[in-house]
Deep mutational scan, measured.
Amino acid sequence: MPVRRGHVAPQNTFLDTIIRKFEGQSRKFIIANARVENCAVIYCNDGFCELCGYSRAEVMQRPCTCDFLHGPRTQRRAAAQIAQALLGAEERKVEIAFYRKDGSCFLCLVDVVPVKNEDGAVIMFILNFEVVMEKDMVGSPAHDTNHRGPPTSWLAPGRAKTFRLKLPALLALTARESSVRSGGAGGAGAPGAVVVDVDLTPAAPSSESLALDEVTAMDNHVAGLGPAEERRALVGPGSPPRSAPGQLPSPRAHSLNPDASGSSCSLARTRSRESCASVRRASSADDIEAMRAGVLPPPPRHASTGAMHPLRSGLLNSTSDSDLVRYRTISKIPQITLNFVDLKGDPFLASPTSDREIIAPKIKERTHNVTEKVTQVLSLGADVLPEYKLQAPRIHRWTILHYSPFKAVWDWLILLLVIYTAVFTPYSAAFLLKETEEGPPATECGYACQPLAVVDLIVDIMFIVDILINFRTTYVNANEEVVSHPGRIAVHYFKGWFLIDMVAAIPFDLLI
């Protein structure tokens, strides 16, 4: 008679799926529990143990900040960024110097990925580790590398530091407007667009060049630039800015003055950032001319202004700041037409079709709590990747769950009947059967004279019903998954307890 339990259901295979997918890609990662103190490590794979030199037993239950890997060259700011990422709910990448158990130093890129439950609360953290440099290539500990984003994938490793954006290309926007319009339909740009040429040739750093990471940081200074100062900065030398009595002219307006920039070969870094931020506020060169004239017309309804409409929906549905990093990277690809469009465009503009998908598509409701890094690593669709929660398995109709209350009560009843059979069957065979043979035949009273025979008949009927119930009862397979398919249940029961239950259900007393 089957006594099969499996009270692990309803099970959740999400954690096993993450481990299996990460292991298949030869990654070095740990999984931490966000619900406990210090976000203790609950799993670390073999790749991480080989990377740091510690065994799994030495890593388990330690804080996922990996303070046991810190050393003299470990930056405090990087460690603080990892700790801050564990307090938030967004994906974050941090470069930090770690030390192995043998004392060797290596520069590592740590990717902190939160995993949320159905309520939107962070319950786990996945920390992925990628070695960037070994100890002989690690720089000085005073050099802070965590304020910069990861290198873009479309640049060669040897040319990542030679990417320079020439400031004269930004200063000569109005001069290039006529050349853009003359391109017409034969050019790649839309009317009114501004073409910015980027020099990728390796050259020595000069005062006129600005690194790509500095251009990325310009967006942080746009908020500090007032509207009046932006307007004066875009007017140009024809209309000098008016300053109040006793007030000095704005240095932001002076930063885009061609006369002032041409007199000296070098520009201050602050002026460069502010000038680029001011130019980015204009949607095209037409807006710059309109600002000089004193009238700013409404933005025209053409394809170039609607190019950012799908980007707005993608940004609203993005799951991490990696989408913004990807957008900034692609927006700086050289030799393309940049349409400086305000994100607050007309909502009635139709979304044009684009061959290049900048932001990841909208994630469906079932995966809105899973970050983009987890979705990318697992390579699963929205119909396959579940949320991290207890999910009731989908069972067929008329199927009994093996952990249901009805099955528990039924098993206790069958257990009592088995005990009765084990006690009274030998007793009936030894004593009652002998008395029946010696006594007179009682054929007239039937079952009324033999109450134990009636009980034995009921017990046999219950055993037959138990066999039928076992054909529709779920079970737990070797992978700790609840199986509810009727065919698989029948095959599993035939290979197991079916023969024993059938022999126990045969009414031998009635056959004798």
Rank of each mutant, 00 (worst) to 15 (best):
D286K: 05
A285G: 07
P151R: 12
A211H: 15
G262E: 07
A204M: 04
H302S: 05
M137D: 04
L200T: 15
P10L: 07
T367C: 03
Y43P: 01
G71F: 01
S283N: 13
T162C: 12
D197A: 01
D144S: 14
P299N: 08
C64V: 09
T216K: 07
C276P: 11
L51S: 01
A156N: 03
S140Y: 15
A83K: 08
C108R: 01
Y43R: 01
T174E: 14
D355H: 14
K362V: 12
F129K: 01
R242D: 04
A160S: 10
R356L: 09
I30S: 01
T337E: 15
N45G: 03
S206F: 06
Q61P: 01
R176T: 06
P205L: 06
F29T: 01
L248T: 09
S320P: 08
K93E: 13
G189E: 06
T371W: 06
A268H: 07
L380I: 04
E208R: 06
A34Y: 03
A40P: 15
G183A: 08
L267N: 05
H143G: 13
H70Q: 07
A285P: 14
A204S: 04
D219A: 05
P72S: 05
S322F: 12
S239M: 05
Q11N: 15
S179T: 09
D346H: 03
V370R: 09
L248G: 12
N369A: 13
R366I: 12
S331P: 09
T145G: 08
V341A: 15
V341H: 11
A268P: 09
Q335M: 11
V341F: 04
I31H: 01
P202S: 05
Y327F: 12
A223R: 14
S182G: 13
N317F: 09
P205W: 04
D144H: 15
G184S: 06
A350L: 07
Q11H: 13
G139A: 15
I363L: 07
H147P: 03
C105Y: 13
K364A: 12
R5K: 13
M291S: 09
L316D: 15
G381F: 04
Q376A: 11
G88M: 12
T337F: 09
A169Y: 12
Y99N: 01
C108F: 01
S243C: 08
F14S: 07
K344C: 10
R100W: 01
F29N: 01
P258L: 12
